[in-house]
Design a protein around this nucleic acid. Structure first.
Lengths: 192, 192
DNA sequence: CGAAAATTTGACATGACTCAACTGGAGTGG
DNA sequence: CCACTCCAGTTGAGTCATGTCAAATTTTCG
């Protein structure tokens, strides 16, 4: 929990009193590989922060194909923001890719916290701004680069993911099929 | 300006005093068709709200091709959030597609306002959450649907844009070439 | 009207997908 | 320790979606 406060402190300065209030609403929880933090159709009741581990957020299209929206690593917040904000059923699934420890704040607690500690409002504004900027960048990359380049960029940017998760998931994140990613990789290795 | 306060009121409730503070930092400005609100390389010094008109935010890749990140309509906030937040040079351009009236708040004023009127922090948190959810949805659609379906969805969702802006921009937004969009459209019209 | 910009059209090229067969571990159980 | 299955990854052939290029046509607007 203390590391969580340190993390908060990178964005906002809390008084002791405020820290206590924040701590009082945090819930710690652990998941095993394969377990779901939230599933499609659920209402996302928690904002979820990853203390350790690795998750993916994906969605299933009408043909049953998985599309990975994002991976979640240490220090990231994950979930379906749309569902959480409006407290309506989620379209996305969030699943652990390995043993994962999270910290959660429930919707009700967070609303209360926003009122009692307005700096928390600032904190989440900053976090979402960052996430938004990252997602814009991803859209840009997907539109302006062919699959091969997107894969290379991904390898640079997320080496922990590349070596920690099955390739078909990386393909899904990149928006291509697993077979095509395999072709790309074999071509890359031929080139040395 | 009053319509702006009404708009704010949809998200937060301000006292008269707070309203006055907010009003004191708003700057109104008008642009003609084709003018740039911000350009690549600039530091985005303002959060920009569209009172009326239509804009596009786009970026140029290494080959000089335009990629439209998003269109901006009435009531939208536009710009390069990454640049604004970190006050670093922007990668994106924001250009008016017709006569456009905006309301702007400078970076410095906004920082001050966040402190004086913490509800504004809440307001922007809510706005960005919405924008983030919208962008996630777009990523999902781009990955799971072929160009033709994306175009049909776009027509449903943004009819004002479809009839108000050149087609090559819509193609760019959809991530396809203008020629291919033209093919899609001619095929659609053949089908009735 | 005339010029520039936007759109259409068509031939051809290619990136990416589908499908099916194959390879190669990593269990699991006898 | 082998036989078996299961899952991820590979490979290749054929196909489809989309891109490229160049020319023709239409629209826009001064």
């Amino acid at each position: 929990m203390n590391t969580f406060l340190e993390y908060l402190n990178r964005y906002i300065q809390l008084t002791k009193e405020e820290e206590t209030k924040v701590l009082s609403v945090l819930q710690q929880r652990s998941y095993l590989k394969g377990q779901y933090i939230q599933q499609e159709g659920d209402i996302y009741r928690y904002q979820t922060y990853i203390e350790s581990g690795k998750v993916r957020t994906f969605y299933l299209d009408d043909n049953g194909n998985e599309h990975i929206i994002t991976f979640g690593l240490k220090h990231w917040w994950v979930g379906d923001i749309g569902s959480f904000t409006s407290q309506s059923p989620a379209h996305f699934n969030t699943q652990c890719l390995e043993k994962t420890k999270v910290i959660q704040i429930s919707y009700e607690d967070l609303e209360k916290l926003y009122n009692e500690v307005p700096k928390i409002e600032r904190f989440f504004r900053l976090i979402i701004q960052k996430a938004y900027a990252k997602m814009s960048k991803r859209i840009v990359q997907n539109y302006s680069l062919p699959a091969r380049e997107r894969y290379l960029l991904f390898c640079e940017e997320y080496p922990e993911v590349v070596q920690g998760v099955p390739q078909y998931m990386i393909a899904s994140y990149l928006g291509i099929t697993k077979e095509f990613l395999s072709h790309i990789r074999s071509q890359l290795s031929k080139e040395g």
